[in-house]
Design a protein around this nucleic acid. Structure first.
Lengths: 198, 198
DNA sequence: TTTATTCGCTAACATTCGTTAGTATATTAC
DNA sequence: GTAATATACTAACGAATGTTAGCGAATAAA
């Protein structure tokens, strides 16, 4: 009956959350069972419920944890006094950074959010829609001042976001190029597609 | 005890497959139950087993049906005597076409393949890896003859494929732009990122 | 019409699932 | 040390899962 080992500055619940992120990414939310999760935490399944309310609550916290970080970054970028094209590159770099450094949570947030239960589900979808609108608004501003070629902005946003979400494949790859080179490549390819022909 | 209604030229199994594609996309493979599927076919769950071997078999057939179409297209494109940049645009257009016209199957193949069981799983992963390699080879050829700017080809392939996979969001969107405009937008943004600065 | 086959039904199976109740032990507060 | 709290355990629950067996009705073949 040994208790869960804990690092200072991180609660038992946080440990469970991080293990859940890894498990949900690997198996998918529905296929990941509480008994699997318990095993990876080193405890019996029922014991988890001393720390969490439900399986769904784990998904809530993971998804909104990630969503909130992106929303906060968007606030910062919008407030910054820099050219639109730099705002976009800044956001791209942030997405890539998050994908690399908080891979499990971001992946789960990206691919498993549909298993959220209302009202969290609607809430999440609204936040997502809002984020994309704000992203598109930056692109549209760039189009107006001719720093970005005239394209359909919502289309461009989805391309950018999904392209970055695809980093997963590298993460597991053995021949991974380092993060800086990856970032530079993506900014070149994606940014290059946005800049007007000069 | 009415039998399943059938169009000419399509077996009962094909009907089940198409309903399964829609259900697996909506709920995810694990969350979609055989009883749900049965209901959408208009029959009891046990009756499905007069036509199929297992739930997993449905996933096999959906995934490999899509994968084979893409492989065949790749064969054609490789054999064509056209510039590399046109080969790439041709592939991009094909991906978009498939995404629009066989949306459910392509989506399931893209997002739910991990629930395949071995040996199908390994087989599928190999095919996928091979497809990406061949795609990257076209880009590398383009780089060598300077029709494409020097970037990391495997990175570019993943960006392209995941960007196109993101069309999902439009499909359900009410404000959908028409398919041709969509295709043109994507070729502009993605292709524009590949062409060398002139 | 008779026979054979296809196919849908009901009932049931063994598992697995998320979760709760109740109890015992370990840690913390006093 | 003692009381209070936190937490892990075992056992069990009801529900849902994929699938099989066996029966009867609909269709096709003779």
């Amino acid at each position: 009956m040994a208790r869960i080992k804990i690092d200072k500055n991180s609660s038992r619940k946080e440990l469970i959350l991080s293990k859940a992120a890894a498990l949900f990414r690997e198996k998918g939310f529905k296929a990941a069972s509480m008994r699997h999760l318990a095993e990876s935490v080193g405890v019996e399944a029922a014991s988890l419920y001393n720390h969490i309310k439900s399986k769904t609550e784990l998904l809530h916290e993971l998804c909104f944890g990630v969503a909130n970080r992106f929303m906060q970054k968007m606030d910062e970028v919008e407030a910054a006094k820099i050219p639109d094209i730099e705002k976009i590159e800044d956001l791209i770099r942030f997405h890539i950074y998050e994908m690399i450094h908080h891979y499990e949570e971001v992946y789960v947030c990206d691919r498993e959010w549909k298993y959220l239960a209302d009202p969290y589900l609607s809430n999440f979808q609204n936040q997502r829609r809002m984020y994309r609108k704000r992203f598109a608004a930056i692109i549209e501003s760039g189009i107006r001042n001719k720093s970005i070629k005239p394209i359909d902005a919502p289309t461009a946003v989805l391309i950018l976001l999904h392209a970055i979400g695809g980093i997963e494949s590298w993460h597991r790859s053995t021949q991974k190029i380092d993060a800086d080179a990856l970032t530079q490549n993506m900014v070149t390819i994606l940014g290059g597609g946005l800049k007007p022909v000069s």
